[in-house]
Design a binder for these strands. Structure first.
Lengths: 140, 140
DNA sequence: TAGTGTCAACGAAGATCTTCGTAGATCGTC
DNA sequence: GACGATCTACGAAGATCTTCGTTGACACTA
């Protein structure tokens, strides 16, 4: 198994690391509030799980997120898609859009995405690889 | 608080109830495999939580899903949207579509949805600016 | 009526998640 | 060198989730 799915608390921490970059326990703690050792413990567990790495050069260790935000989003979404949408990404997207606000720019992005998806339907890019895992990212 | 978010196991059970309609513990158990009393216990807990109701007329009680599939999907999606996508439904939808297969029909549905969303953006729905919404607001 | 099977109820165990207190090491300062 | 602040490590408690064994009630039947 590549990386475990982060728990809600772990996701909170990852979000801090994605936004602020590598950080100490104290920095995370100050961003999120609550007990200092709570985040120490969580970060230790996350390091065991492989969700973060740490540098022990200084006395206050520096933690870095391992998976990118993109990867985690894809993973969590794949999970929910399987569990609640019968594996249909489109049904999920439909549900996401149906009662919530989006900007014009986002709508334009989505149209472009639909165009792309439709184009790729005609060009057989790969087999029926419907794995729920995060797949390889096309490096830009 | 309306209804709690179903746990993964509870969601499995709800999916059976949505697909098959009201069912006994045995029916759920036969659909999902595993120990009989596991589902008995889960359904009892779900009844306490309000996720299902039950009819005790017969010796084998009949359980019914309380929230619709639609409602649960919306709820779980809203949760994930907040936790992992900074509240952006469009970003979530984009991520859902970017590496997964959808049918032409689903893509057409999505385009229609985008059209609708965009139309609703332009039509202020009523003369009054009843923006009882969450968007831009000067702090009080 | 004794035996077999099905049912709900209950309790408990194990896993995971979250939180925090305490202990011990280290650093800076007086 | 003593003191206080800061840090890691460790353990444990409480909550939730999942699973299952046992018990007692009930029903069918030979």
């Amino acid at each position: 198994m590549p990386l475990p799915k982060p728990t809600p608390s772990e996701l909170d921490i990852l979000r801090v690391l994605w936004r602020h970059g590598p950080a100490t326990v104290r920095a995370v703690h100050e961003q999120l509030g609550g007990g200092y050792t709570t985040y120490l413990k969580l970060l230790q567990i996350m390091a065991e799980k492989g969700l973060v790495t740490r540098t022990e050069a200084d006395r206050a260790h520096i933690y870095r997120a391992v998976p990118s935000e993109h990867e985690v989003q894809t993973s969590l979404l794949g999970d929910l898609m399987q569990r609640a949408f019968g594996g249909s990404a489109a049904q999920l997207a439909l549900r996401a859009l149906e009662s919530r606000r989006s900007s014009r720019e986002e709508i334009a992005q989505l149209r472009a995405m639909l165009d792309r998806v439709e184009r790729e339907m005609e060009a057989p890019a790969g087999g029926l690889d419907t794995t729920a895992d995060q797949s390889k990212e096309k490096k830009a």
